[in-house]
Amino acid sequence: MLRRIAAFLHRHPGVYTSLMIGPSSAVLLFLVAVPTLIILYFSVLTRDSSGLIQQVLTLENYASLWDPRFFWVLVRSLALALGTTMLCFLVALPLAYWITMYGGRWKNLLIFLIILPSWTSYLVRVYAWVFLLRDNGLILNTLETVGILAPDHQVRLLFDWPAVLIVMVYSYLDFMLIPLYAALNRLDRPTLEAASDLGARPLRRLWSITLPMIRGGILAGSVLVFVPSIGEFLVPGLMGGNKVNMAGNLLDWAFLQTDNWPLGAAMAMVLTVIILAIIFIYLRSVGKQGTLERFS
């Protein structure tokens, strides 16, 4: 029976292909495309004074986004998301490199140990950071005891952007580390060693030999970090004390706090377009072909 089916599918590759991608196409259609269209539709509806949504088409919601305050939140989100991505990269690269080169048979274990904390709830870990970063918390107290900070210092970490940045890097480090490690691990060690034997200076070697070879990993890692960080609302809310708000907080504000779904939908559309544009430009400029296949 199976043999007959196989033969049939061999003769009709189109059917085979449809069967293989049919289910995921359906999932994408109904859970990505249709919901996006619904958001698009909501973004042009009117909200009346009592908070009810009327089926009256308008571009009002988009117009009200033209506001310097939204603009600055957007700029802040981009800055923090880019900062998170770059810090993740700067931190994950040496770590991944060290593990690949010197990890030996413990390589995989070392990687696992980094990922492991992400198996316990993200929320629990974020709340733990509140207590590490607070004014009388472990980190500032230790720095004071060691003498790095003067006893009367005015350094504050919590409820400001450093805390947001630290915890976002903490949260998304895995997403950068895994692709980088995978890419580095794929390189054969002799290539890397040969480069150093040729007397290439370390930074130059990194820049001109190693980085181009792991470009796929860098691309994947940066996109995987950038996207969730730009939409993040829990970390800026909690670590930024609802002062250092990002685009995700505004979505939360529009949808949940002010109950203005059309405005929220318009924000979501604008944000999606901006993110897609950034990623498109990024992949275009770094990847040669600009298609997403470059990822791997």
Partner: peptide, 27 residues
């Protein structure tokens, strides 16, 4: 086209995914 659409969820912040699928499920 399929490829482009396939990766869109990765490029959408969770907040947007959450809200838009919620609207769809209600629909």
């Amino acid at each position: 086209l399929f490829e482009q659409v396939l990766y869109i969820p990765l490029f959408m912040p969770g907040t947007i995914v959450g809200v838009s699928t919620l609207m769809f499920f209600r629909f």
